[in-house]
Design a binder for these strands. Structure first.
Lengths: 342, 342
DNA sequence: TTGAAAGCGCTAACAT
DNA sequence: ATGTTAGCGCTTTCAA
């Protein structure tokens, strides 16, 4: 690593004092400096290949131009677009993204990871791990640490959040199934400890009721976790208890994959005997036979908006007018798995 | 953000000078300090909740304890495990991971992203974007910037790299197909500008030849890019030209998905009429009908090893004994898509 | 074993 | 419009 050029060297090359060079190089203070001088400094900087030392700058300004992001499970394809969106937005303002993944089932591990990020003096945090009752969220708020929740939120969160509109998404699904003639619809829900699991469950109850579909507790099964195996177990239990059901609304695509298996294990056909729908519309599941009908959530936009919101908080001294949360509207990708009622 | 405790405050609370506190807190200099003093300082630090300011430290030591990683396409499920593995390994040594994704098709964009990471004074780089002829790789080496290539490498790379053993992987596939009785085998290759595309292609030629399978150029089709659509186009062209082929080795899972479609478009059945194999064994494709036979690459380990290698380079003053590259051994996940010859 | 003092590279009063 | 100066919080010589 070659020796770096310092501001002082640039100043000397331009025949000015360090502080003048600093002002000339800094966008916001540039107009205080004589135009010719600015030109001279800029030229010298370019010629010498000067790049400011962010540590020295950060030490003075007390900002690292870095944002930390806590991901529950980076191998989940959901988070790729969120990260990509956030990174793109942050880059526009000269910020970089520090990634850390934490085992979301281990609350202590999440806390530790967040602490590491804070110790690094990240200017703000994007948190994708929040559970519904999350002491960590309350803690961040209390410590006045600029943070935004993304994808999942906490109950009556003191922090702003960017999430998908689960009520609308489930509405799309239920409406579609009703249009297809289904009247006995079941639900494999996600864990109710997550806002997504709980929210979609509530939405399912609400929509079926308002559309006049009878749903009693026997038509609903909660999965422990968003995994294929959990979906298989839940759907199995559900179909055993309620063999009359003709459609299953799953809280997520992986659960839907489990439901596919459960249906097949009973010798039935997905799509014609039992309709199945997923949530998230993750890549490649449109290649299944039958291709999965699923709710598409704008994850990339979620990342962009979360980053944008955080940028706004950082430049306006944080909690100016309370948490400005957003719910992003989903769309429905209708495919073969949600055929008409047999 | 509450005011941070400084080293000076800890020192005062412990009744010692700043520099003594510094030595006591620092693992490597701790043994120079009186044991009782160490205890006193540690206690004070804990009581006050002291966390060192990494910017101040970095300014002195000229290290940021940060590693940058350049990803070509963070939405590709391949990179999740690589990132997770790298992050876990880096965390052990107190390093954090700065993520940046770059459009790999735009060489200038990759260069710009790398430059940003370097300007941030990251201590080292993990590069997942390398093309076979990559001026960026040569440039990094020339500038003596500690860097490791992962997943893909450059031709006669001056930088160490951690990649999968493509020769062995394709060997597994070809051997398996031959065992199934196939003798007319085609190949849908990846772009030859990538080490993976080129390497698997070479391996295919080499293995078919050594196993006595006749392969002429008409049995091979190069895809422009690792995408389902490209795989469809390539497999279509291949099957049109060589309808006698009974098995297609695809250079990647997405290309294999395209091949599924091409086979079906000709009214044939995947697995029985035409065997198809993929590469990477990305999640969920075992749920297809038929489930995809694919080469499993230890991506998480790839991330771990790359990070470990970089750590070794950083602590030993970089290029001590030349690039120590690794090829990680793959395994074959045999499933329904590679049935016996009809 | 500990203290004193310098300085990493930068920004931001304050002075001119 | 520019220069002077102080200092962000830490590590690391050099002295004692």
């Amino acid at each position: 690593m070659t020796d770096r050029i310092t501001l002082k060297e640039v100043a000397e090359a331009a025949g000015v004092h360090m502080s003048t060079a600093s002002r000339a190089l800094n966008e916001e203070t540039r107009d205080v400096v004589n135009a010719e001088t600015v030109a001279r400094v800029l030229k010298a900087a370019r010629k010498l290949g000067y790049t400011p030392n962010p540590l020295a700058r950060g030490l003075r300004t007390n900002r690292t131009m870095t944002v930390g992001m806590i991901i529950p499970d980076i191998e989940n394809p959901l988070f790729g677009p969120i990260i990509a969106g956030a990174e793109a937005r942050l880059g526009k303002d000269g910020y970089s993204l520090l990634i850390a993944d934490a085992d979301v089932k281990d609350s202590a591990s999440v806390a530790r990871v967040i602490e590491t990020l804070i110790e690094r003096r990240t200017d703000g945090l994007i948190v994708a791990t929040s559970a519904r009752k999350d002491p960590i969220v309350a803690d961040l708020a209390k410590r006045d640490i600029p943070a935004v929740l993304v994808n999942r939120t906490a109950d009556s969160s003191p922090l702003p959040s960017i999430v998908g509109d689960d009520h609308a998404g489930i509405g799309l699904v239920v409406q579609h199934l009703v249009d297809q003639g289904h009247t006995r619809i079941g639900h494999v829900s996600g864990p109710h400890t997550m806002s997504t699991g709980h929210g979609r469950y509530q939405a399912f109850l609400s929509w079926t009721q308002s559309l006049g579909i009878e749903v009693d507790p026997s038509a609903i099964e909660e999965s422990e976790w968003y995994r294929v195996e959990a979906g298989l177990a839940s759907a199995e239990a559900l179909l055993k208890r309620r063999p009359d059901i003709t459609a299953i609304v799953c809280a997520n695509d992986l659960l839907a994959m489990g439901a596919y298996r459960a249906v097949r294990q009973r010798g039935l056909t997905v799509g014609s005997d039992v309709a199945i729908t997923g949530y998230n519309d993750i890549p490649l599941l449109d290649l299944l036979e039958p291709p999965l009908t699923s709710v598409r959530v704008p994850y990339r936009q979620m990342g962009t908006e979360a980053a944008g919101l955080l940028m706004a908080m950082l430049s306006s001294g944080s909690g100016q007018d309370g948490p400005i949360s957003m719910r992003l509207a989903p769309t429905l990708s209708v495919r073969g798995s949600s055929g008409p009622r047999a």
